[in-house]
């Protein structure tokens, strides 16, 4: 009995310390923590006076360092063609899985809507299992999850989010390459076999490497049980709940390069995936629009040449901005 009494008193003391710590942390430290390790949420908290929030990755702000005269972000350029104020919430490699956690923080009746980048490449096995970014993205998602500040901090400290080792990620990726079935006969029946076709010589050939990247980046069929689809579904649900207009814009891909390197078999897959996304999400009657920019930017307006990316020069970014602005104006 004596021991239980002693333990009871100490448990009460501990509870008091933890509650006090939670209060002190929220009041004095959490904001600084967000600045350092959750800056998109920090930005979001300071952006809810805009009309639209623009959720995107590096496609928003990357530019051609040599030739661009106007290096403005897509989100910023969009404001040139409509009368809405738009604030960018963008960070490299981020995808719908992270955006959905951020969207949960938007207070109701503060903004008109959200614009969310729909990056087809974020569905590919390479992105899902990237050693450099996957664990970091999971960490961001945990940092942005709507919890009490001290709980968020402790979750991050205890690494309470999915963490995979480098070899686990590599293993999963190899598995995807082998088992994701493509709608073509052998050798294009999966990514592994497709990449083994020696159209451009051996592995040291730069063209072969680029073709390989393209197959690995776009050689898949999006299905409704894909993890990213689940994220986009949740974004739609959140937008509905918070009464927000939701504008998805499919990011342009370098289709011309894909056509030259691989041909119809790959570009048809990309188009098929695009159609799936439009069919699933474009519902103006429910305040959800999908802008199809997939083929709007030509090869010359992409800034990277050795890997498929969604990085555009000034002309490319302006094309996207205009298309988004056009949709915003149409809604009005």
């Amino acid at each position: 009995m004596e021991i239980l009494k002693k333990i009871g008193i100490r448990v009460l003391l501990l509870t008091f310390i933890i509650l006090a710590a939670a209060f002190i942390y929220k009041r004095y430290f959490f904001s600084d923590f967000l600045k350092e390790e959750g800056h998109l949420l920090y930005m979001l908290n300071r952006s809810v006076n805009a009309d639209y929030l623009f959720f995107s990755a590096s496609s928003d702000y990357t530019f051609d360092t040599i030739n661009d005269k106007d290096t403005g972000r897509v989100s910023f350029l969009t404001m040139n063609y409509c009368d809405k104020s738009i604030k960018s919430i963008a960070e490299g490699h981020h995808h719908a899985g992270v955006f959905k956690e951020l969207i949960k923080h938007i207070p109701e009746n503060t903004i008109e809507g959200i614009i969310v980048a729909m990056n087809l490449r974020s569905f590919c096995p390479k992105w899902l299992t990237d050693e450099k970014s996957e664990n970091a993205l999971q960490q961001y998602a945990a940092a942005y999850a709507p919890n009490f500040p001290l709980v968020t901090r402790l979750r991050l400290a205890l690494k309470n989010y999915p963490i995979k080792t480098e070899s686990e990620l590599k293993e999963t990726r190899a598995e995807y390459f082998k088992t994701w079935v493509l709608p073509y006969p052998f050798p294009k029946n999966n990514i592994e076999n497709w990449c083994a076709i020696e159209k451009y010589g051996d592995w040291k050939n730069a063209k072969r490497q680029l073709a390989d990247h393209y197959i690995k980046s776009y050689g898949f069929v999006i299905e409704k049980d894909h993890i990213r689809i689940n994220d986009f579904d949740q974004i739609v649900e959140l937008a509905n709940t918070k009464n927000l207009r939701l504008i998805f814009h499919i990011l342009p891909e370098d289709i011309e390069e894909a056509q030259i390197l691989i041909g119809d078999s790959l570009t048809n897959l990309i188009a098929k995936n695009r159609n799936f996304m439009i069919q699933r999400y474009h519902q103006p009657q429910n305040n959800v629009w999908v802008i199809d920019n997939l083929e709007k930017v030509s090869h010359a307006d992409f800034t990277d040449r050795d890997f498929p990316t969604e990085h555009y020069n000034q002309n490319g970014r302006t094309i996207i901005a205009k298309a988004i602005a056009q949709q915003l104006n149409a809604i009005k």
């Binding site: 310390i17 933890i18 006090a20 710590a21 002190i24 430290f29 960490q139 001290l150 901090r153 400290a157």
Partner: peptide, 20 residues
Amino acid sequence: RWSGYAIVLFFILAFSGTTN
């Protein structure tokens, strides 16, 4: 003793490293 525990516990809760 308990003031010490409180400080140490606060540091664990609020300032632990977050990288993996």
